[in-house]
Amino acid sequence: MLSRFDDGRAFIDEVLVPLSDAYEVVRRADYKAATGADEVDRLLRWLNLLDNDDRIPPAILYLSRPTVHTHDLHRFLADLERLAASLLSRRMDVTRRSSDTAEFCTPSRQEPTFSDRPPRCNSTTPRAGRL
């Protein structure tokens, strides 16, 4: 990733600062928007109650995108919360949680970044032989 940047300042400004800002929003449940911020913060607070941090990287990645629409963010976080609750209630191990969270974040993309439309939660049902 560093090879895409001519100097360290561009990397800090274009990558680290947006990710850091997104991390603060996730951890503090302090999303700012003209409308819908209360619902987004409610979902973030709920996700922060979970006893693992599996949901933090996808939330950070989504929030660090240059354009985030509140409605899409709410839908993404609701799906992420559903996935996290499912994995928690089924007491999945860290390997399964990581695998399902990665699948959730990249269901049909060729690159490791989010497309314009947020992914839908598609891995909350148990797979055969993986209970």
Score class of each variant (00 low, 15 high):
47 L>G: 11
48 N>I: 10
48 N>Q: 13
48 N>W: 14
49 L>M: 14
49 L>N: 15
49 L>C: 11
49 L>F: 13
49 L>Y: 11
50 L>G: 07
50 L>N: 14
51 D>V: 00
51 D>Q: 12
51 D>K: 13
52 N>S: 14
52 N>T: 14
53 D>Q: 12
53 D>W: 10
53 D>N: 12
53 D>R: 13
54 D>F: 14
54 D>Q: 09
54 D>K: 04
54 D>L: 10
55 R>F: 15
55 R>G: 06
55 R>Y: 15
55 R>M: 12
56 I>M: 08
56 I>T: 07
56 I>L: 08
56 I>R: 05
57 P>G: 08
57 P>E: 04
57 P>N: 07
57 P>C: 01
58 P>H: 04
58 P>Y: 04
58 P>W: 05
58 P>L: 06
59 A>F: 01
59 A>D: 03
59 A>L: 03
60 I>P: 00
61 L>G: 03
61 L>Y: 03
61 L>C: 02
62 Y>S: 06
63 L>I: 11
63 L>G: 05
63 L>A: 08
63 L>F: 03
64 S>D: 03
64 S>W: 08
64 S>M: 05
64 S>C: 08
65 R>V: 03
65 R>P: 03
65 R>T: 03
65 R>D: 01
65 R>Y: 04
65 R>K: 06
66 P>V: 07
66 P>K: 00
66 P>L: 05
66 P>A: 04
67 T>S: 11
67 T>L: 07
67 T>P: 00
67 T>Q: 10
68 V>E: 05
68 V>R: 01
68 V>D: 04
69 H>E: 15
69 H>Y: 10
70 T>L: 10
70 T>H: 03
70 T>F: 07
70 T>V: 09
70 T>I: 09
71 H>R: 13
71 H>F: 12
72 D>T: 13
73 L>T: 03
73 L>M: 07
73 L>Y: 05
73 L>N: 03
74 H>C: 07
74 H>A: 11
74 H>L: 04
74 H>K: 10
75 R>I: 05
75 R>Y: 07
76 F>W: 02
76 F>I: 00
77 L>T: 00
78 A>T: 01
78 A>L: 09
78 A>F: 00
78 A>P: 00
79 D>C: 01
80 L>N: 02
80 L>V: 01
80 L>H: 02
81 E>M: 08
81 E>V: 08
81 E>A: 15
81 E>K: 12
81 E>Q: 10
81 E>S: 12
81 E>W: 13
82 R>M: 10
82 R>V: 03
82 R>Q: 12
84 A>S: 15
84 A>R: 04
84 A>I: 05
85 A>T: 02
85 A>N: 05
85 A>I: 08
86 S>Y: 06
87 L>R: 01
87 L>G: 05
87 L>S: 06
88 L>V: 10
88 L>I: 09
88 L>W: 13
88 L>G: 09
89 S>Y: 01
89 S>W: 05
89 S>M: 08
90 R>I: 04
90 R>Y: 09
90 R>L: 11
91 R>C: 10
91 R>M: 09
92 M>F: 05
92 M>V: 12
92 M>T: 12
